[in-house]
């Protein structure tokens, strides 16, 4: 059976056209063991699940974790645990978050057991690998270059927002800025960061 993409009334008001899926139809096909539906499910969600898991748990064992999530989602759909098929995205998100919480709890328990059994046990090196460290340093240099090119006052505004995590309202009030001025400053700094990054990349490539 060919998969069909038709508008899902629950989603069309929020998603652009290229992200509108017939979730109910997909769930129905999976429940009927339609292989193409499972392939479509994997195609739609695999990158997003991988992205989310990598951000929360790191790259280790990523393939296995993505696979585990899919198994759980498919099994739950087949058992009829998904009561609102049009909420498939929310359901997948819940499964992924539970997997993450489970992995963290396992890691905490393992750490406790290792401490109890072996007081001189190996402690994992939590430093970044050399490549990630260098990339991070280069990115920081780009940000520093952006900061050098702006006024002291603008630097203070960005310091309050990114470093001290003050709210936009507080900053605008205390620094006597309008919301537009504040947003403009942030977007210019970010655009400059992107521009410097592209220039650096272009220099490396050429």
């Amino acid at each position: 059976m060919e998969s069909e993409r038709s508008v899902s009334t629950a989603q069309s008001s929020e998603q652009p056209d290229n992200l509108v899926y017939d979730w109910s139809g997909m769930v129905d096909r999976i429940q009927r063991n339609d292989e193409t539906a499972m392939e479509e499910l994997y195609r739609v969600f695999s990158r997003g699940i991988r992205f989310y898991l990598c951000r929360q748990l790191g790259p280790q064992d990523l393939d296995d974790r993505v696979h585990d999530c899919f198994l759980i989602v498919v099994q739950a759909i087949r058992k009829g645990d998904l009561r609102e098929p049009e909420r498939l995205m929310g359901f997948v998100r819940t499964i992924v978050r539970r997997q993450i919480a489970g992995h963290i709890e396992t890691a905490v328990q393992t750490r406790r057991q290792q401490v109890d059994i072996e007081t001189s046990g190996a402690i994992p090196d939590r430093r970044l690998d050399p490549e990630t460290f260098v990339i991070g340093r280069q990115e920081e240099e780009l940000a520093a270059a952006v900061l050098k090119g702006i006024s002291r006052r603008d630097r203070e505004i960005l310091t309050r927002f990114y470093l001290h995590e003050q709210s936009q309202e507080q900053i605008c009030r205390e620094m006597r800025l309008t919301e537009t001025q504040f947003r403009l400053l942030k977007s210019r700094a970010k655009a400059r960061f992107g521009e410097l990054g592209k220039r650096k990349l272009f220099r490396k490539v050429s």
Partner: peptide, 13 residues
């Protein structure tokens, strides 16, 4: 961007 900016601002401060 956020991570780099935080780091650069902390160093500048």
């Amino acid at each position: 961007y956020v991570r780099s900016m935080k780091s650069a601002l902390a160093s500048a401060q």
